[in-house]
C-alpha cells in the first residue's frame, strides 16, 4: 500500500514528528511504500540544516534524511510555510526539497492513505 504522511509540527517541541517517523519506519518494515512526507506549518522546521541537538538525543532532521535516502521517501517542505519561518534552500537539510502545496494535494490523490501528525 502507498502511504502519504503530513507533519504539521516542528521537531523537539512536539511529538508529532517523532510519531510520524516511527509510523513511517513501521510502514516500510511491513513492506508498504511511504511515497511522500509533506512538512507543513511549523513542521517545516524539521528540514533545518542548522539543527544541532545534544549528542545523547535523537537527531530528528538527520533521521528523516536517512530514512528518505534508504527507502526513496520524498521529503517535501511547503514553500509558503517555509519562507514564513525562515527555511530556505541555503539552510535546507540534505534529503529534503522545497515545493508547493500542490505536492500535498497530490499525496492525497495518489496515495492509498494519507496520515496527518500534528497538534
Amino acid at each position: 500500500m502507498k502511504f502519504g504522511i503530513v507533519v504539521n509540527e516542528g521537531p523537539y517541541q512536539h511529538q508529532a514528528s517523532d510519531s510520524a517517523y516511527l509510523f513511517a519506519k513501521a510502514a516500510i518494515e511491513k513492506g508498504h511504500e511511504v511515497w511522500r512526507v509533506f512538512f507543513y506549518h511549523d513542521g517545516v522546521n524539521n528540514a533545518s540544516r542548522l539543527t544541532e541537538p545534544p549528542q545523547d538525543d535523537r537527531h530528528i532532521v538527520n533521521r528523516w534524511a536517512k530514512l528518505a535516502e534508504e527507502h526513496k521517501v520524498d521529503l517535501v517542505v511547503c514553500v509558503a510555510a517555509a519562507l514564513r519561518r525562515g527555511i530556505k534552500e541555503e539552510n535546507l537539510a540534505q534529503g529534503f526539497r522545497i515545493s508547493g502545496l500542490g505536492q500535498l494535494v497530490e499525496s492525497g490523490i495518489k496515495c492509498d492513505r494519507l496520515v496527518t501528525f500534528g497538534d
Partner: peptide
Amino acid sequence: TIYALESLEVVLITAAFDQ
C-alpha cells in the same frame, strides 16, 4: 494560532486540482 489560515491555503490549492 496559524492553523486556520494555512488550512485555507490548502483548500484553495486543492480546488485547483479539480477534486
